[in-house]
C-alpha cells in the first residue's frame, strides 16, 4: 500500500494509472479499440496537437503562458501553403521559413512581456489576434497544396511490428523524446525549471530569468509553427481559420500530463500522455458511431472532467 502511495505521489504515474483504467474500460466495451492500427492512427492524427502542446509545456514550466499558439499554428500553415503554391518553394524550405518566422514572432512577444513588464496573458492574447490577422491577410480561403514531396511524405510509413508510424508521428515522438531529455539534463532545461520554480533564486544564482523566458516564448511559437507545418502535411492544405482554440487544448494536455500552471513542474512525456488521452477520447467517440456534435462535446468534456476529477481524488487520497 505504501509503495502504491509512493508511486501515486508522482503526477505522471498517477496520470498513467488513470489512463490505463480508462483504456481497459473502453477496451472491454469496444472490439478492436485496443489495437496496433488504432494506436498508429492515434499517433498520426494527434501529432499537430502534440507538437503544439510541447511548446505550451515549455512555457508553462518556465512560469509563463502562451495563448497565441493556435493562431501562430494557423498562420504558419497558411504561410507555408502559400509559399509552396505561389512561391514555388520546396516544402521543406517553406517549413523552415515559417518556423523561423514563428520563432521571431514568439521572441517579440517575449520581449514585450519581459522588457516592458506586461502581463503574459494580455501580450499573448494580442499575439493571438495579430497572428490570426496575419493568417487571414495571407489567404482568406483554405489553400490546397499538391507537391510531390508532400505526397511522398503522406505515404511514407515506418513499420515496427504491427505499428505503422508516419512522418508526423515520428516528428512528434522524436520531439517529445528530445524535449524530455532537454528538460531533464540539458543546461537550458535546468535553467527553465529554475526560472519557473523560483525566479528570485534563479536571479540570485546569476541566471537571467528574463532572457530565459524570452527564449521560451520563441520556442513555444516555434513549436506552434511546426504544428502548422504538420497541419499542411496531414491535410494537404493550409487554412487561416484552422486550429482555433488549439492553445487551450495544448495547455489542457500539458496540465493533464502533470505540468503545473504555477511553473517549475512538468514533463514532456506527461504532455504526450495528455495528448494521447485527448486522442483516445476522440477514438472512443469514433467507435461509438454516429454521435451528433452535441453528444461528441458532452463526451469529450465529460471524459476529460472524469479524468482530472479521478486523478484529483486519488491525489487527495495519497496526501492523507
Amino acid at each position: 500500500m505504501s509503495a502504491l502511495r509512493e508511486l501515486a505521489r508522482k503526477p505522471l504515474a498517477l496520470s498513467c494509472a488513470v489512463f490505463a483504467v480508462l483504456v481497459v474500460l473502453a477496451g472491454a466495451r469496444y472490439d478492436g479499440l485496443v489495437s496496433a492500427a488504432v494506436l498508429s492512427n492515434l499517433i498520426e492524427d494527434n501529432a499537430e496537437l502534440g507538437l503544439a502542446a510541447l511548446g505550451a509545456t515549455w512555457v508553462l514550466i518556465g512560469g509563463g503562458l502562451d495563448l497565441s499558439i493556435g493562431s501562430v499554428c494557423a498562420c504558419a500553415g497558411i504561410g507555408a501553403a502559400k509559399l509552396i503554391v505561389a512561391g514555388g518553394l520546396d516544402p521543406f524550405a517553406a517549413f523552415a521559413l515559417v518556423v523561423g518566422g514563428g520563432v521571431a514572432f514568439g521572441a517579440l512577444q517575449g520581449l514585450a512581456i519581459e522588457r516592458l513588464s506586461l502581463p503574459p496573458f494580455l501580450v499573448t492574447l494580442a499575439g493571438l489576434f495579430v497572428a490570426r490577422a496575419a493568417a487571414l491577410s495571407i489567404e482568406l480561403e483554405s489553400l490546397a497544396v499538391s507537391h510531390p514531396t508532400l505526397a511522398a511524405l503522406g505515404d511514407a510509413r515506418l513499420r515496427v511490428g504491427e505499428l505503422s508510424i508516419g512522418p508526423l508521428g515520428l516528428a512528434w515522438l522524436g520531439a517529445t523524446c528530445l524535449c524530455a531529455f532537454a528538460l531533464a539534463s540539458s543546461r537550458f532545461g535546468r535553467r527553465v525549471r529554475a526560472v519557473g520554480g523560483n525566479a528570485r533564486a534563479a536571479l540570485h544564482f546569476g541566471l537571467a530569468p528574463a532572457r530565459v523566458r524570452i527564449e521560451l516564448y520563441a520556442l513555444s511559437a516555434g513549436f506552434a509553427a511546426l504544428a502548422g507545418c504538420a497541419h499542411v502535411v496531414y491535410g494537404g492544405s493550409g487554412s487561416a481559420i484552422a486550429a482555433s482554440g488549439l492553445e487551450l487544448e495544448a495547455i489542457a494536455a500539458a496540465v493533464v500530463g502533470g505540468t503545473s500552471l504555477a511553473g517549475g513542474v512538468g514533463s514532456a512525456l506527461g504532455t504526450a500522455l495528455g495528448v494521447a488521452l485527448f486522442g483516445f477520447i476522440q477514438t472512443v467517440i469514433l467507435f461509438e458511431g454516429t454521435l451528433g456534435a452535441g453528444w461528441t462535446r458532452v463526451a469529450v468534456g465529460g471524459l476529460f472532467l472524469g479524468f482530472v476529477a479521478l486523478r484529483k481524488v486519488l491525489e487527495t487520497w495519497v496526501r492523507r
Binding site: R187, R190, R193, A194, G197, A201, H204, L207, G264, V265
Partner: peptide, 19 residues
C-alpha cells in the same frame, strides 16, 4: 532560496554545470 524542484546538485552548480 533554492529551486524547490531541482536536485541539490543541480541547485549547487546551476549555471556552471559540467557539460
Amino acid at each position: 532560496d533554492l529551486v524547490p524542484e531541482l536536485s541539490l546538485a543541480e541547485n549547487l552548480l546551476l549555471g556552471r554545470e559540467p557539460l
